[in-house]
Each structure stands twice: as structure tokens, then as C-alpha cells.
Design a protein around this nucleic acid. Structure first.
Length: 696
DNA sequence: TTTAGGG
DNA sequence: CCCTAAA
């Protein structure tokens, strides 16, 4: 049994230390498209660099709960269980998930500079694309709100460890933080006449990206859609919560050799399968469900489709390798495909399901936004208002952009309790690597948000878009989205698609961190669903939830979850058994929404009184079934509570009563019934007592 | 799961 | 309404 104990460890944040950047942007007129390029490359290079090489240290991230947790686990051969000093005991695991974390430090000097894309597009690069960094170093914790727009907040307690690199000057990155906690900034200087273009090409480039450490590209299945990274935290109306369907594989590098060369990419695209969830039934029940459209061709390997739901049928582990291999190859080939077929395929969210709907059209331009067209427009000299000439007075009319931080979704890792700390590190490292690469490796699109609105017209100059150097930096933001090429499987050209549910924790959920997915080696099927607050269906579900008719999505989810539960295999010891799963926001779990208050109507009171008169107090379940059977939102506890208050109300003077007045007649009946049934209860007790006495 | 009772 | 001990 012990073997199957798990440790659930949350991976909460990333911090990316200073990464030298070799490439300087070209001179000349900046063009935001290129700027997007550079942004993209910023993010991408940065993260890939991080993903490429990680040094993982187990470290507590709890900032307040005692020093015992802050000790770095050093002995990597010690088993977790034996390590009494580590807060990794199973019992505490769930509660402490959010307190524990890993800090990833990178050997900076070894971080290669990744220029793949950039160099590719060098020919078109021009402009003062200087990248300036400031290392306004980590302000710890609490700033997660930055990422959240309006009321949608998530408190991501993070593992903020301060990295205090100094500003490194022109053309360098310093301290980009992947995580909610830091406010490190990455500033980009753009000239004011740069144009805005969200670039597809960059995404394509990214798709073709080669890992500097020569990791097998096929190791990762990039997220298929809706990866949203928030770059501009304050302004991005969509990206605050990255909705991530993060199909991460935990492939061992070494596994590549082991695996057979089965490379039928079309046969298994588990990357597009949602992960099964196990855990709290209630949570599952309350999960909102979203749907992704995916290509139906992935339906081998025992994936069963029922209606709009996808079930997973695990196959034996022996098959995993094979499928894994092919899985890994899948994105690789897909990228190639897309490279050839780039533009047509990257026009935005054709396969986007509801999940991605909030942003799927970020880059969509009614006029089309192909590289060519925007380039042409730019070349033709997009008309500039006469007044705009002022902005060209000097080259100093630059718009400063800043990227406060990158947010990378939380990961949830499960590891056997008797695994060594070393394996924990190893797995975490790999997990993180792959997660990051999965997110970014698929390529990113960049959207521009100005003053809360998406700027769609890529051909506009910054000036035309109203982005001036006078503006506060905060007015301008970016959204990062997954490259649509990853979103729509190139295979299955007929375009038939099915809908996959994607779960999103909803506020009503009471969740424990430990109740998330448990998963084994087939990480292809693991995905991260981050709460997408902007999702339309979520609110629907919430509303539906407390009204009578069970909604189909709920039902499907339950089924799905049930299936998953049955199919989750026991994890083995090896690292492959580790899973990447979403860690539900701890804070939001705490902030379980109170049910909305629904005062009883007189009609309801009447029904209640009647039922109680008949059945008596103490049979609330019967009362419920008798009088409120179709009022799903009234539980028997509610009825009992209401009776309680009714009795109280009846006893107090009418002046003291509040709310909708209950007819005195009803209150009288309440008192009568209450007295009667109290008497009955007392009699019952007397009876019992006398009976027992007689027996004695 | 229900009941009972405090918060 | 929530929470939870106890049945």
C-alpha cells in the first residue's frame, strides 16, 4: 500500500534568471510585428532556455509557516518518506501543497541563446527593436492579482525566491519571471511608428524550433489550443488565467532509444485527449465542462467516443512506449506540416472550442492578416494622419513596452511516497521542462492589447492605434496564445471533429489539492485545464447547478470522471509514472462560494409548515421529499434551518422580524406544530426511558 | 447520508 | 447558510 501512496506536490511558479541574449535587434524602424517577433522570441527563448536545463531544488515556498519547511532537501538519495524533516509526508501533503514548491534555477552560463526564429526572420527585422530589461526585482507574493483582471482573482501563493540579478543592459534579458509573484519587467522599446502585427510567422518559426540542448522535439506534445499566457497582466482581458490544455508528455530522453519506431502520427493523438480526473466526487460533479474540438482520427488506442465525450481506455503499460513514441513524433510532424502549410493553417482557432473562444480571434483580422498582406500594407506606406508627423520628429518617439511577467500554469506532480528525493527532483525537472516546452514549443501568437482592447489591425502604426510614448506602460499589453497550428491537428483533413470536454474548476467547487488528477505514464493524456474565467459556459454551469434540471455537461463530466477513475492505473516507481496535472488554485478553493441566499417564499413556508405538521420535526429528509422534492436547491438541512428560524420568528415580536413577512397564521401553525412535535419527542423519549428501565 | 445543533 | 459531530 505504501508503494501507492502519493505525494502531491504543487509546482507553482517559475523563476527564470538572467539569460544573456546574444542577438541584438536590428536597427531601423521598429515594426511591432517584428516586435512581436522579438517578444515572442523573448518569451520563447527564455522559456525554452529554461526548459532546456533545469536545476531543481526542493524547497519550501512557504513564506510564513516555519523554518522547518524551508530547508532544502539535500540528500537526494534519501527517500522522501524517511526524510523526517521534509514536509513531504503524505498526510500533510495535501494541505501543504501550496506551501511546497520547487525552485528552478538555471545555470545561466550554460543557457544557450536561441535564435532560431529570430535569425530566420532577420531579413525582415528592422527598427529599434532594442530590448531593455529592468530588473525590478521580485516583489514577493500577493501580486498574483496583477494577473487578474477585475474580480477574477487567483491567489497564487508562489514559490517566490528572489533572484536578484542586476540590470544587464541593452539587449539583455534579466529576470523574467514565470510566476505570479514577481514583478520583474522586461521592457521593449519600440518606435512609435511601428506597426502592429500579430505574427503568424513567428509562431510557425516557433513550431519549428529546435531545442538548444538538442532535446528531442518529439518529446513534447505541444498544447493544442488555448494556451494563453498573460504577458501584460493588468490589461489583458483574457490571458489572466491561462487556459491551458497542456498535453504534456513525460518522455524520458532516454526513452527515445528504447521505443520502437512506430511513427504513425495520425494514429494516436492522445495529445488531444483530456486527462482523466480522479478524486473528489463532488468536485468532479461540480466541474464545469468545456469542449474542445479535436480531430477524430485520434481514436485508436482504445479511446472510446461517446457522443461528445471522450473516454479513455488505458491500454497496458507495455504499449505505452510505442504510443509514446509516436506521440512524440506527432507534434514534430505536425510542425513540419505546418511549416509547409503555414499561413493557411495559422489563421486562428479553427479548431478552437469553447475553451479558447475568448481569445481565439485575438489575432483575427477581418481583412486577413497574412504576413504578406500586412507587409504589403506596410510597404505601401500605410497612410498616416498628418498630425502624426509630429511623432516622427525624432527617433525618440518610442513606445515603451513592458512585460511584467510571464505566467506559467501550475503543475501538479504526483510521486510515490517512497521515491527518493532525487527522483523527485528529476521528475520535477522533467515535468517542468516539458510543461514549459509544451506550452511554448508549439509556438505562440501574440496579440496586442491596448487600453484593454485588442488591437486587431496589424497594419496600424502604433501612433494610429493610439499607442504613444506618453501612455502609461500599463496601457499596452500582450497576449500570448498557442499557435493555432497546434490547435488544429493537421491530420484528418476532412475536418471532422469531435468535442472533447475540458474540465474547469468552478467556483462552487470545494476542492482539495489532492483531488486532482492522478495519472501514470501516459502523460499524453494529461492536460492542464486552468480556470478560464472568461469562458462563457462556466457561468452557465454555475447557474445551472443550483437549479433543478441536471445539465448535460454535468452528467457527461460525471461519467467521464467515473470512467477515468476506473482507468487510472497505479503508478509505478519510475519517473514516468509522474504526472503533470493542474493544481487547483488553493486560494480559490478556500474561497468556496457560499450558496446564494434564497429566502423562503411564503409559499415555501406554507409547504414546509404543512409537511412538518404531518411528518413532524426530525424527519427532514421526508419533509424534503414530500414538499420540496423538486426544489433542488433546498436541502433537508435548509429545511431544517428554515424551520428553526421559523420557530424563532414566531416567538419574537413582529417588530423584530425581518424579511418578507410570514403570515401570522403560518407562524401560529409553526408554534403549534413545533410544540406538538416537541411533545411527541419528549413522549418518545419517556417511552424509551421507561422501556429501558423495565428491561433493567 | 441524515439529524441535530452551534456559528 | 455553513460546518460538523454523531448517529
Amino acid at each position: 500500500m505504501e508503494l501507492h501512496k502519493r505525494l502531491d506536490c504543487g509546482f507553482i511558479g517559475y523563476q527564470v534568471p538572467y539569460i544573456p541574449r546574444a542577438t541584438r535587434s536590428a536597427r531601423g524602424r521598429g515594426n511591432i510585428r517584428k516586435k512581436s517577433d522579438s517578444n515572442e522570441m523573448c518569451a520563447f527563448d527564455l522559456l525554452t532556455a529554461v526548459a532546456g536545463k533545469l536545476l531543481l531544488e526542493g524547497e519550501s515556498t512557504s513564506n510564513s509557516s516555519g523554518k522547518d519547511q524551508s530547508a532544502v532537501v539535500k540528500d537526494t538519495t534519501e527517500t522522501v518518506k524517511e526524510d523526517a524533516d521534509t514536509p513531504l509526508k503524505e498526510n500533510h501533503c495535501n494541505e501543504r501543497c501550496q506551501e511546497r514548491g520547487f525552485f528552478i534555477s538555471q545555470i545561466v552560463s550554460e543557457a544557450p541563446v536561441v535564435n532560431h526564429c529570430l535569425s530566420k526572420s532577420t531579413d525582415t527585422l528592422s527598427g529599434p527593436a532594442s530590448v531593455i530589461t529592468s530588473s525590478d526585482c521580485s516583489e514577493k507574493l500577493g501580486s498574483a492579482e496583477q494577473f487578474i483582471n477585475g474580480e477574477r482573482k487567483t491567489e497564487n501563493r508562489n514559490c517566490s525566491t528572489k533572484v536578484e540579478h542586476e540590470l544587464s543592459g541593452y539587449g539583455d534579458f534579466s529576470n523574467c519571471t514565470l510566476g505570479a509573484e514577481s514583478k520583474k519587467q522586461l521592457k521593449i522599446n519600440l518606435s512609435n511608428d511601428a506597426t502592429i502585427t500579430t505574427n503568424k510567422r513567428a509562431a510557425i518559426c516557433s513550431s519549428e524550433f529546435h531545442d538548444p540542448w538538442d532535446r528531442k522535439r518529439s518529446m513534447l506534445v505541444a498544447s493544442d489550443n488555448t494556451v494563453k499566457l498573460s504577458l501584460s497582466t493588468d490589461l489583458d482581458p483574457f490571458g489572466s488565467f491561462p487556459v491551458i490544455r497542456n498535453d504534456v508528455q513525460l518522455a524520458n530522453k532516454d526513452d527515445d532509444e528504447k521505443s520502437c519506431g512506430c511513427t504513425q502520427p495520425s494514429t494516436r493523438n492522445k495529445a488531444f485527449m483530456p486527462a482523466p480526473r480522479v478524486g473528489d466526487w463532488r468536485m468532479r460533479k461540480l466541474q464545469a465542462s468545456k469542449y474542445w474540438e479535436v480531430n477524430p482520427q485520434s481514436d485508436e488506442e482504445g479511446h472510446v467516443n461517446v457522443d461528445n465525450e471522450t473516454r479513455h481506455v488505458y491500454q497496458k503499460r507495455e504499449n505505452v512506449y510505442t504510443s509514446e513514441r509516436s506521440q512524440r513524433d506527432f507534434p514534430f510532424k505536425k510542425r513540419k506540416l505546418y511549416y509547409c502549410n503555414s499561413f493557411s493553417n495559422s489563421d486562428g482557432g479553427s479548431s478552437d472550442g469553447i475553451c479558447s473562444s475568448p481569445t481565439k480571434d485575438v489575432n483575427r483580422d477581418a481583412s486577413g492578416y497574412s504576413l504578406a498582406s500586412s507587409g504589403a500594407r506596410a510597404a505601401a506606406g500605410t497612410s498616416i494622419p498628418k498630425g502624426a508627423s509630429a511623432s516622427f520628429r525624432s527617433n525618440d518617439s518610442h513606445v515603451k513596452l513592458k512585460i511584467k511577467s510571464f505566467r506559467v500554469p501550475e503543475l501538479f506532480v504526483e510521486i510515490p511516497e517512497n521515491a527518493t528525493v532525487g527522483s523527485l527532483k528529476a521528475c520535477e525537472s522533467r515535468t517542468v521542462m516539458e510543461a514549459v516546452t509544451a506550452i511554448l514549443g508549439g509556438g505562440l501568437r501574440i496579440g496586442v492589447v491596448f487600453q484593454g482592447k485588442k488591437v486587431r489591425d496589424d497594419s496600424k502604426t502604433l501612433f494610429q492605434a493610439g499607442i504613444s510614448h506618453d501612455d502609461k506602460l500599463d496601457a499596452l499589453g500582450f497576449t500570448l496564445e498557442p499557435s493555432p497550428s497546434q490547435a488544429s491537428p493537421p491530420l484528418g483533413p476532412e475536418g471532422r471533429s469531435r468535442v472533447l470536454p475540458c474540465e474547469t474548476p468552478q467556483p462552487l467547487t470545494r476542492c482539495s489539492p489532492g483531488s486532482t488528477i492522478i495519472h501514470n505514464g501516459m502523460q499524453q493524456e494529461t492536460y492542464n485545464a486552468f480556470p478560464d474565467y472568461s469562458g462563457t459556459n462556466l457561468s452557465n454551469f454555475i447557474e445551472r447547478d443550483h437549479d433543478s434540471a441536471p445539465s448535460p455537461p454535468d452528467a457527461s463530466l460525471e461519467k467521464n470522471a467515473a470512467d477515468s477513475r476506473a482507468l487510472v492505473p497505479v503508478a509505478a516507481m519510475d519517473a514516468e509514472a509522474l504526472a503533470v496535472v493542474p493544481m487547483l488554485k488553493p486560494k480559490r478553493c478556500e474561497t468556496v462560494q457560499r450558496r446564494i441566499r434564497r429566502p423562503f417564499s411564503v409559499f415555501e413556508v406554507e409547504a414546509l409548515v404543512q409537511a412538518v405538521e404531518k411528518l413532524g420535526t426530525g424527519r427532514w429528509r421526508d419533509v424534503k421529499m414530500r414538499a420540496f422534492d423538486n426544489a433542488k436547491h433546498r436541502t433537508y438541512v435548509d429545511l431544517k434551518d428554515k424551520w428553526k428560524t421559523l420557530v424563532h420568528t414566531a416567538r419574537i415580536s413582529p417588530q423584530q422580524r425581518r424579511g418578507e413577512p410570514v403570515p401570522q397564521e403560518l407562524l401560529d401553525r409553526v408554534l403549534i406544530a413545533h410544540a406538538y412535535w416537541s411533545q411527541q419527542q419528549a413522549r418518545q423519549q419517556m417511552k424509551h426511558q421507561s422501556e429501558t428501565r423495565l428491561l433493567l
